[in-house]
Amino acid sequence: MADSTASVPAPRARRWPYLIPLVAVLALGGVFTKRLLDVENGLEVTALPTVLLNTPVPDFDMPPLPGHAEGLKSADLKGQVYMINFWGSWCVTCLYEHPILIDIAKSRDVPLYGVAWRDTPEKSIAWLAERGDPYDKIGQDPNSKAAIAFGVAQAPETFLVDKKGVIRYKQPGPITPDAWRNDILPKILELKAEP
């Protein structure tokens, strides 16, 4: 071989390039491990970046649940700060979020609108009857028209809309007490202070 005793010493000096693949594989493994752990620890609730921030709420007009007088339409989201929450009786994390929504509704910090996403009216009504209704208005979105317009990928997802009807905040996944205290409530107060 080239590095036998008779050969020139040059090849010995250039051994390090052979380590490049090993280093590259280890680095890639490190990145993959970190991403996996992030998902595991809930650091990355959604892979989707929010493209709708700072854009006006999309046009929608959702029918009411039976027994409710009004549905929900985009015109309802103008003039003050609103919170709009996509949920479904099929959604397990919505169960976790529900008592927090009830607390928020009691606090009267912000009007709360709900979208019954991909659900039957019977199941939505049963859910609200059993667990309490935190919503000021509810619209039905059985075929995801509004959900897609809001770029919703999974339930629950919650948006804050400012006085001008512009989307200013998105909470992917359930509202946790921490997220409410540290992110959402301060954002509501900030939006309320705007002209």
Partner: peptide, 9 residues
């Protein structure tokens, strides 16, 4: 339209 809702993803 889909890109305007969900981004380039």
């Amino acid at each position: 339209y889909m890109v305007s809702r969900y981004g380039d993803y």
